[in-house]
């Protein structure tokens, strides 16, 4: 298969990879770039543990070809924290015990990061619907909902 060169921004940095056209974005991130926070939990696009942010939208990276992100801006869980420390969603997941095994967490965080920009002051019901593309087997969601509401509150207060 002819390799394609794909250039995109990854967590704010220009990135270039050589890949087959059929390579899924999730595998390109995990195996070609070598950042492994983004996970794989199914092959039917349900679980959302592979969720990343592409040009301001939440995307399941198992359902996007890596060649499709050419020229785009991709953010993964590794890009959430900055020099100031953890992002509000990361801090809130710790504070509210919104994770156990941690496998869904990167996808949940990336979805919550985008969701709170779409809806900065959500109700509990809106959080539940807003994160319904992300499955979790450990938490029963209740503390994840709390964490997203807490993160939203902290983000509003910081702005």
């Amino acid at each position: 298969m002819t390799k394609h060169t794909v250039s995109f921004r990854l967590n704010g940095k220009p990135t270039e990879i050589e890949i087959d056209p059929r390579t899924l974005l999730v595998h390109a991130l995990r195996e070609v770039v070598g950042i492994t926070g983004t996970h794989i939990g199914c092959e039917t696009s349900h679980c959302g543990v592979c969720t990343v942010d592409v040009d301001g939208e939440s995307m399941k990276s198992c359902t996007v070809l890596a060649v499709q992100v050419a020229g785009k801006d991709v953010v993964t869980v590794e890009g959430l924290a900055d020099e100031q420390g953890l992002h509000a969603v990361q801090a809130a997941f710790i504070e509210e015990h919104g994770l156990q095994c941690g496998f869904c967490t990167p996808g949940m965080l990336m979805r919550a990061y985008r969701f709170l920009q779409e809806n900065p002051d959500p109700t509990e019901e809106e959080v539940r619907w807003g994160l319904s593309g992300n499955l979790c087997r450990c938490t029963g969601y209740q503390n994840i909902v709390k964490a997203v509401i807490t993160a939203g509150k902290n983000l509003r207060e910081a702005n």
């Binding site: 995990r30 926070g37 983004t38 941690g102």
Partner: peptide
């Protein structure tokens, strides 16, 4: 007590088998 495991997991720094 808040979990000692969490900082690595919320930053994608866990290490699972496929990593």
């Amino acid at each position: 007590r808040k979990r000692k495991e969490d900082p690595k997991f919320v930053q994608g720094r866990g290490q699972y088998v496929d990593d």
